[in-house]
Design a protein around this nucleic acid. Structure first.
Lengths: 222, 222
DNA sequence: CTAAAAAATTTGGGTTACCAAATAAATTTT
DNA sequence: AAAATTTATTTGGTAACCCAAATTTTTTAG
């Protein structure tokens, strides 16, 4: 038995789960290797081991698919990751853009009991600080009903849920505008000329391009 | 660079620090190997690596000593361990006897900044749930003024601080007696015959042997 | 001081997760 | 369909951390 619990296995399962969500097309060895920044030979070797463990199936068209068991494990890691992110932001006052790497370490810690207690301590949050849904202990995800800000209605109140683009430069830009998940805002105008938007954000009025607006995901505030 | 940060290194440094505190006599390879439940050959190999890194010195009498740098790193791990234990007990409602293994994982996570924030979040505790002092961010430890219960005075109020013996069986026994760090108690009598004690613990009276009493560390309640 | 015991060290292996480069197989282009 | 490209797979190798068993060195006892 490894001295590291199942850290590696967990990373493969997590990545496979994420890929299965993101792209519709099947996940092959190359795609997984690229996603994990590993050599295809390494990935093939590991995937075979996962297959022997019944966590993954190697289909006849060479695509890699999680079994029910593998899916469950992958979701658990995602659950852990997102709950720790909530902890870091809501309790330790990190900014939401800083927590990913730390959560990547914390997600491999310990027991399911620990994460269930953490969830209770945090008050059963449904979304992480990036706006991504947190699987409950049965693996169920709350539907995220967010839409792009560029598709939102004028003069209606919205709340930022997450961002479609997660490039650092974009996140830094948003941070300067004081736009983060949870921020309440309203579209006051859209310019015909270039499609740019005027927003009311916390009593001040700012301008953003249509491109930026399309990468901000919002939910109507009830 | 390893994919695991410095988990192994950290464990060696932590153990060396603990040994340097516990036993007065010098720490040799055999002792370290025993403490870590590893083969002496393994330990020797690792200690040499630590020595190359300047974290440890191999003295001419074959004893192993932490350098200032190594000591600092070892203390940091202990700090992390104890702060996470406080978190698990005070926030996630674990019992103090359950948290060691989880803290052993958490202690290897992440940044010094994280642990500083955690410390602040927890309100700068000076002792962990076992009663052991938590090094501050400069490595300073609060003096623990505890004495063995067997050396305590009759009819004076004390508070349990920690235990000298940390064997599971002993902790389980104490747990059944509802004795844990923080518990208030008073010696009502000591039998001449075998040195055993009568204690008042939370309104009930219990009997413990002298050996048990010598492994319970207490502080006078002000 | 010498024999026995203990500790330190060496030697030869094992496993896991990784990689680069070569080869084989499948897919796409033309 | 043949050529070119992409993907999958095999092969040979590395570094970290570990072990058991043999050997050497040191310490302890007689």
């Amino acid at each position: 038995m490894s001295h590291f619990g199942h850290q590696f296995e967990e990373n493969y399962l997590k990545e496979l789960y994420k890929l299965s969500q993101k792209d519709v097309k099947k996940v092959n060895n190359t795609a997984l290797a690229k996603a994990m920044a590993l050599n295809p030979a390494t990935v093939l070797e590991m995937v075979r081991k996962l297959s022997e463990k019944g966590l993954v199936e190697l289909l006849s068209d060479k695509s890699i698919q999680l079994t029910e068991q593998g899916k469950k494990k992958g979701l658990l890691i995602i659950r852990k990751h997102r709950l720790w992110e909530v902890f870091l932001v809501s309790k330790l006052k990190y900014r939401w853009s800083e927590v990913h790497d730390l959560a990547e370490q914390l997600e491999h810690v310990g027991s399911e009991d620990l994460i269930n207690r953490l969830e209770e301590f945090l008050g059963y949050p449904a979304f992480d600080p990036h706006g991504d849904p947190i699987p409950d202990r049965n693996g169920k995800l709350k539907k995220n009903t967010a839409i792009a800000l560029s598709k939102a209605l004028k003069n209606k109140n919205y709340q930022v849920v997450s961002f479609a683009d997660t490039a650092d430069s974009f996140l830094d830009y948003l941070s300067k505008l004081q736009i983060e998940p949870g921020t309440k805002l309203k579209i006051t105008d859209q310019l015909e000329y270039d499609g740019s938007f005027s927003l009311t954000v916390q009593k001040s009025i700012i301008q953003i391009s249509e491109k930026v607006a399309s990468n901000i995901l919002v939910q109507p505030v009830i």
